[in-house]
Amino acid sequence: MTGGQGVTLRVEACGKTFPDGTRALEPITLDVARGETLVFLGPSGCGKTTMLRIIAGLERPDVGGRILFNEVDVTGIPIERRNVGMVFQSYALFPNMNVAENIGYGLKIRGIGKAEREARVAELVALTGIEGLVHRRVDQLSGGQRQRVALARAVAARPSVLLLDEPLTALDAALRERLRVELDRLLRTLGITTIYVTHDQTEAMMLGDRIVVMRKGAIAQIGTARDIYFSPASRFVAEFIGATNIVEAECHDGMLALPGGRLPIQNGASGAVVVMIRPESIDIISTEGAVLSGRVGDVSFIGDRQRLTVSGAAHKPLLVDAPNSLGIKAGDIVGLSVKPEAIRLLAGD
């Protein structure tokens, strides 16, 4: 058994083909540092849960795949001896036990005495803010409370790796936002090596030290939230993370030739290119002297700013974020400016 708080984790050439022939994962290799939180992010069905279950020991990788905790091969070790903590999307709290018994179950299995167990449960109850609920039956808890109990239960026995599969998906938007902040604080306090699966990019960017963007069972990109947001490796990543404009155009002499004008870019590429421009990196300026212009289509208020669609500038309407203070209405002709460094050249699809 691998003990102790936080191990290094290595996933080595782990692919997964299910007995029915479904190829859920292409062979994937990656390393996770001690205490790091790594987030798997991707659309539904891309293999995130499968990856998590392989690390947990609930599924075996295809032949040749290996999982190493602290450089020790654990591939053949069943989950109950891997010393992992796991939070399921449905929480999977035991209905036949109350809150305290749920949280203490892993300790009980490890033969830890009653007094010590109670002390540890009390500590976790305080840490997760569920005081006063310890004697409740689990079906008398709200969704948010269940989530906390599940988390407390998963970390009670000081697991080497903490695995969370969409732990916030079952909650409503407001609660999700609050718990995201709490979870972030908690993961940092605990310092356990954590694998976190989600399809919510905000969650991924907030919680992950690094993010693995997955697509069809393979890794599309690994990097920090900033890397992935500002320097997506592919069109898929760019489109998956945040609102974005993908522009296909011809490039000559460092200028992008668009129907509504020309944009200077940094890169010395030429010929047909695909570039990405985030809506917030496009500024609205007056039409006079603007290198690029277009006509405003929709104006939608999205809270802290407004999002416009501007047609005529590129082949497809562009999404542009503008401050609420700007008085703009549909039909206006506007000028657009984009800093050259905000235009990212994309490779592949």
């Binding site: 947990a56 989950i79 109950e80 449905s90 035991f94 036949n96 179950y105 299995i109 490890r110």
Partner: peptide, 26 residues
């Protein structure tokens, strides 16, 4: 899922059967 969750907490198959499966099948 309950069974998997008990296994992630370190319980052996037999232990899971007695602690989680049978009580919930009551």
């Amino acid at each position: 899922t309950l069974d998997e969750s008990a296994s992630s907490l370190g319980a052996s198959p037999w232990r899971r059967f007695l602690d989680v499966i049978v009580p919930n099948a009551r």
